[in-house]
Every structure is written in C-alpha cells, then in structure tokens.
Design a protein around this nucleic acid. Structure first.
Length: 519
DNA sequence: GGCGGAATCA
DNA sequence: TGATTCCGCC
C-alpha cells in the first residue's frame, strides 16, 4: 500500500532519541526505546509505523519485550509487563491505544503540539523539550503543504530550512547508538556536536525555533528579524528547531510541565525566511491551510489555529464534522490568538487581551446554584466565550470569561486562556479550580487587575485535561481526567480513517543499528 | 488482549 | 519518577 506521507518527514529530532533527554531518568525510557526500534529497519518485522500518524504496531510482542528486557537487563520482561508500562503512558499522554487494533499504539503527537507553547519546557532540565518538531527524513525539497488529511502534517515541515533539513537528515542517517547498560549514548555526542556545528554553519537559523509559533508576532514573519537569540534555556547543543514543527511536536508532551520556559515573542525572530524561503502571503496561506487542516485532523485545541494578517485560510477538508465549522478558519486581520471552541470569537478582538477566570464567588452566583452544584469545584469549566464578542456565545448565559485588556503592552502576544467546552458535555468534570489554560509561562501569576489568580500549576493541569479530551478520538475524557475525577466511563473507540500501512518507513528513516549489548 | 490498581524497586 | 511485577477484571 501507499506509504503514509507523514512518514517521509516524520521523525524525532535527534535529541529526542537520546536517553539523556528522557525526563527524570538517566536510563532509557520505554518510549525512547520504542522510537529507537521504530526507526531501525532491522526491526521492521518486530515493530513498525503503521496507519495513522504516529501509530505503530508491535508485530512481535514477545520480541519487543525481549529486546526491551535485554536493554533494561530484565530477562523476565514480557509483553504483559511491557504493555503495562505502555499503559502508564496513557496518562502521560505519551501514547494511547489504537482501539480495535491489536498491539497497536499511537504516539500522542497531537498533544505534543503545544502550539501556544512551542518552546515549552525547553531547558527546564526536567523534561523533554516539547517543541520537538518532526524531523524530515526523506526528500530535501521544499514543497507546498498538501491538501489531503494524510498529508497535512507535512505542512509543519514546509517552512523548514533546506539547509537544516539536510543537516538533520544527515544526522538522522548517522544516528545515535545507545548501549544497553545505562542507556547513555556513546558515539552520538560527537555526532551531535558535529551536527550542531553544521547547523551553526547555516547561520542564525538555529533561532528559528520560533519561526511560526502562533505567538510569534506576525510582523516578524514577514520581515527578517535581525535579532538572533541562541536559546539560553536549551540544554541541547542545538535547538530542537521547533519552528513550524513546534506545532507538531512529537511525543514530547510527556512532561506536563509546560510552564517553564516560554520564549518571549520578541526573541522569536526568524532569520531563516530571509535566507531560505520567501514568506509571501501565498506561501503562508498554504502553510496555514495545512496547519489548519492538521488542527482538525488531530483534534487539536483551537488554540492551534494560526492567525496571520491578511491571510485567509481556506477551509480544510473535513468530511465528518461533529461540530459546526469554527470560524477560526477565517483568520481575522489581527495577530490575535487563537480562540477557543466554536463559540469563541477572541480573534475578533481589536485589542490585546487575555482571558481570566472570573472571581469565584461572583461567577458562581451568576451561574446559578443549580449549576453550581454540578460544577462546584470547577466553576469556570464551561466557559464558552472569549473576547469581546463572546458575550452571546454562551447562548444567553452570561459570559463566563473575564476579558481584560492586557496591561503589558510590551507583550506582543495575546493571552487567551483556553476554555473547556468539554466540560459542558461532562458536567461531572471535577477539575480543580484551574479551568483556564495556562497563560504564558512568563506572565505573572497574578493578573494586574487583581483578577483571581489560578495557580499556574492548576492552569496547566487544566490545560492538560483539555488536551487529553481533545486528543481522544471520541473527544472523551480520558486518562488523567478520569483519574482525577475517579470516573470510569466507557470510551468510544476512535474512528481511524485513512489508514495507511507502511512497510517503507525505514526507507524514509535513517538506517541505524540498534545495539543491545548484553548486561 | 487490554486495562488499571497495588506493591515494589532502583 | 519510571518502570517492574503481579493480578483481578472485562
């Protein structure tokens, strides 16, 4: 069958494979190992990419277990145990099960897509950088974003510098090797350094880690920005090159700690466009269209919609619409963010604003006592409106989001707290009071206006909960929320369309050898 | 097969 | 913290 298009570009950046990039562990982690196997052709009969983006099937569970056991020096390892470990990833959003398919799992790439926080956790030192972009592994030519769902994800790659592209490809080809005993890389360090040199040679491009970050001031998208800031926060020799890829960071949302290292927009200049691509509106249109498509395809938060001035993004093809097509698809002439759910009109705001959850008491009063009963602990969970026009969004109900002008005008971005329409579907959701998605990590925990401040931690937790829901194919609450609320409702199987099997992943990915030294 | 709790380990 | 081990349940 036809090779999924994403295969030709999907991969993790080199550092993602490096055990030392595993959060909180010096030992190789299972997901790491899985990736390792996945990109090595010799294991194609054991485990391989298959079907949807990020989906893989364990063809030989026993063998995978054996390999894993060998790597971890756990001779008693078996698939039952290994799968238990995999299941623990569900809650971490690293993986989820492809229901109805045996031994088939899927990396939660969509969650990893922290569009609003493309650089999250970079350099936190505690987790895998979440802006890890997919790294192209095949082809080195620029092409426009595709229009079919199966191709859209490549859009994130489109704007990447060819130079980096090839550089990364080379790195991929070289690969890294991990030894069994401790999971630390052996020869990859030097290669990494070399690769870093390569990329430096390209120029300041290493700074395009912010290239198309939605929060990137749109102006800088169209004029080369002179300022280049090496990422002081990155623990890696080379910035993982988020760029547009940051929108599609693979498996790296693993560490739900998106609060630490947001890179302020001003530093997100993208010199690459001057040197490598012409970012004319048409290109951007293509890109945005593709991105928008991917947002849909992967049920991303509407935050994922990119808005750029004067560019109208065509409606993506979406056969089955469960919800009315949001108007996000028609980006306003404002560099404004990313609204939330269909009722959100935040983008229409002519001014910068951010949304904050309302003060507790008052909100509850407005919501009514009956409602309050159902959502006593998540007062703001059913926010539907955002922005100045959102007042009517809730269908007569008073807007549940407090909109306030952003006082910090130096901030080019707009802060929009995300909201959860899901909670309306699930009144039982008993999230903590932190309903809103996190604001920019660098924003002060207490809003200027004395707005009730939800601890960042909670905000993020809320966001992750949201992400979790969105990622579930059925938009069902899952792992974490379930865990949090102690609920155990059934989940519907996600429908998987456009399944494409690939036996050619390896053709596109680097040829690497996996060394499983004995223990 | 798949799930997830519980205890445990490093 | 990230498994590993065991296990009952569906």
């Amino acid at each position: 069958s036809k090779t999924p298009n994403w295969i030709y570009w999907f991969a993790f950046p080199e550092w993602a494979y490096k055990p030392e990039s595993s959060p909180g562990s010096r030992q190789i982690q299972l997901w790491h190992f899985i990736l390792e196997l996945l990109r090595k052709q010799e294991y194609n009969d054991v485990i391989a990419w298959q079907g949807d983006y990020g989906e893989f099937v364990i063809k030989d569970p026993d063998e995978v277990a054996r390999l894993w056991g060998a790597r971890k020096c756990k001779p008693q390892m078996n698939y039952d145990k290994l799968s238990r470990a995999l299941r623990y990833y569900y809650n971490k959003r690293i993986l989820h099960k492809t229901k109805g398919k045996r031994f088939t799992y899927k990396f939660n790439f969509n969650k990893l897509v922290l569009v609003n926080y493309p650089f999250i956790d970079m350099g936190s030192g505690r987790g895998v950088p979440q802006s890890a972009p997919p790294v192209p592994t095949g082809g080195t030519h620029f092409r426009f974003p595709p229009s079919t769902p199966s191709e859209v994800l490549s859009s994130s790659e489109e704007l990447r510098s060819p130079g980096v592209f090839s550089t990364v490809a080379r790195r991929m080809a070289r690969g890294s090797v991990s030894d069994c005993s401790d999971g630390t890389s052996t020869n990859s360090e030097l290669e990494e350094a070399a690769a870093a040199a390569d990329e430096r040679a390209i120029g300041p491009d290493r700074a395009f880690r912010g290239l198309l970050a939605p929060r990137l001031p749109h102006e800088s998208l169209f004029r080369p920005a002179p300022r280049v800031h090496p990422d002081p926060l990155s623990p890696f020799p080379v910035s993982p090159l988020p760029g547009p890829g940051g929108l599609l960071s693979p498996a790296l949302s693993m560490t739900p700690t998106p609060h630490l290292a947001y890179t302020p927009s001003p530093s997100l200049s993208s010199p690459m466009m001057g040197s490598h691509f012409s970012f004319n509106p048409e290109d951007m249109k293509h890109y945005l269209q593709a991105h928008t498509q991917s947002v849909y395809n992967y049920h991303l938060s509407p935050r994922a919609f990119l808005h750029y001035p004067n560019i109208i993004v065509p409606q993506p093809h979406r056969p089955t619409l469960e919800k009315p097509a949001p108007h996000h698809l028609q980006p306003p002439p404002m560099p404004l963010p990313l609204g939330q759910q269909p009722t959100d009109d935040a983008h229409a705001s002519p001014f910068k604003f951010k949304l904050q959850p309302p003060p507790l008491g008052r909100k509850q009063r407005e919501a009514g006592s009956s409602l309050a009963a159902a959502s006593s602990s998540n007062h703001a969970s059913s926010f539907t409106g955002a922005g100045p026009n959102a007042g009517s969004a809730a269908g007569g109900a008073p807007p549940k989001i407090k909109v306030e002008p952003v006082s910090d005008l130096s901030e080019e971005d707009v802060e929009v707290t995300d909201i959860s329409e899901e909670d309306e579907l699930n009144p039982n959701s008993e999230d903590e009071e932190g309903d809103m998605f996190p604001l920019l990590p660098h924003s002060p925990p207490v809003s200027p206006g004395g707005t009730r401040c939800i601890p960042l931690k909670l905000r993020f937790k809320r966001r992750w909960s949201e992400d979790q829901r969105m990622e579930a194919d059925g938009d069902r609450d899952e792992a974490e929320d379930k865990k949090v609320r102690g609920e155990g409702e059934d989940q519907e199987d996600g429908k998987r369309e456009g399944e494409e099997t690939s036996s050619e992943l390896q053709r596109a990915t680097a040829q690497l050898s996996l060394e499983n030294a004995s223990c």
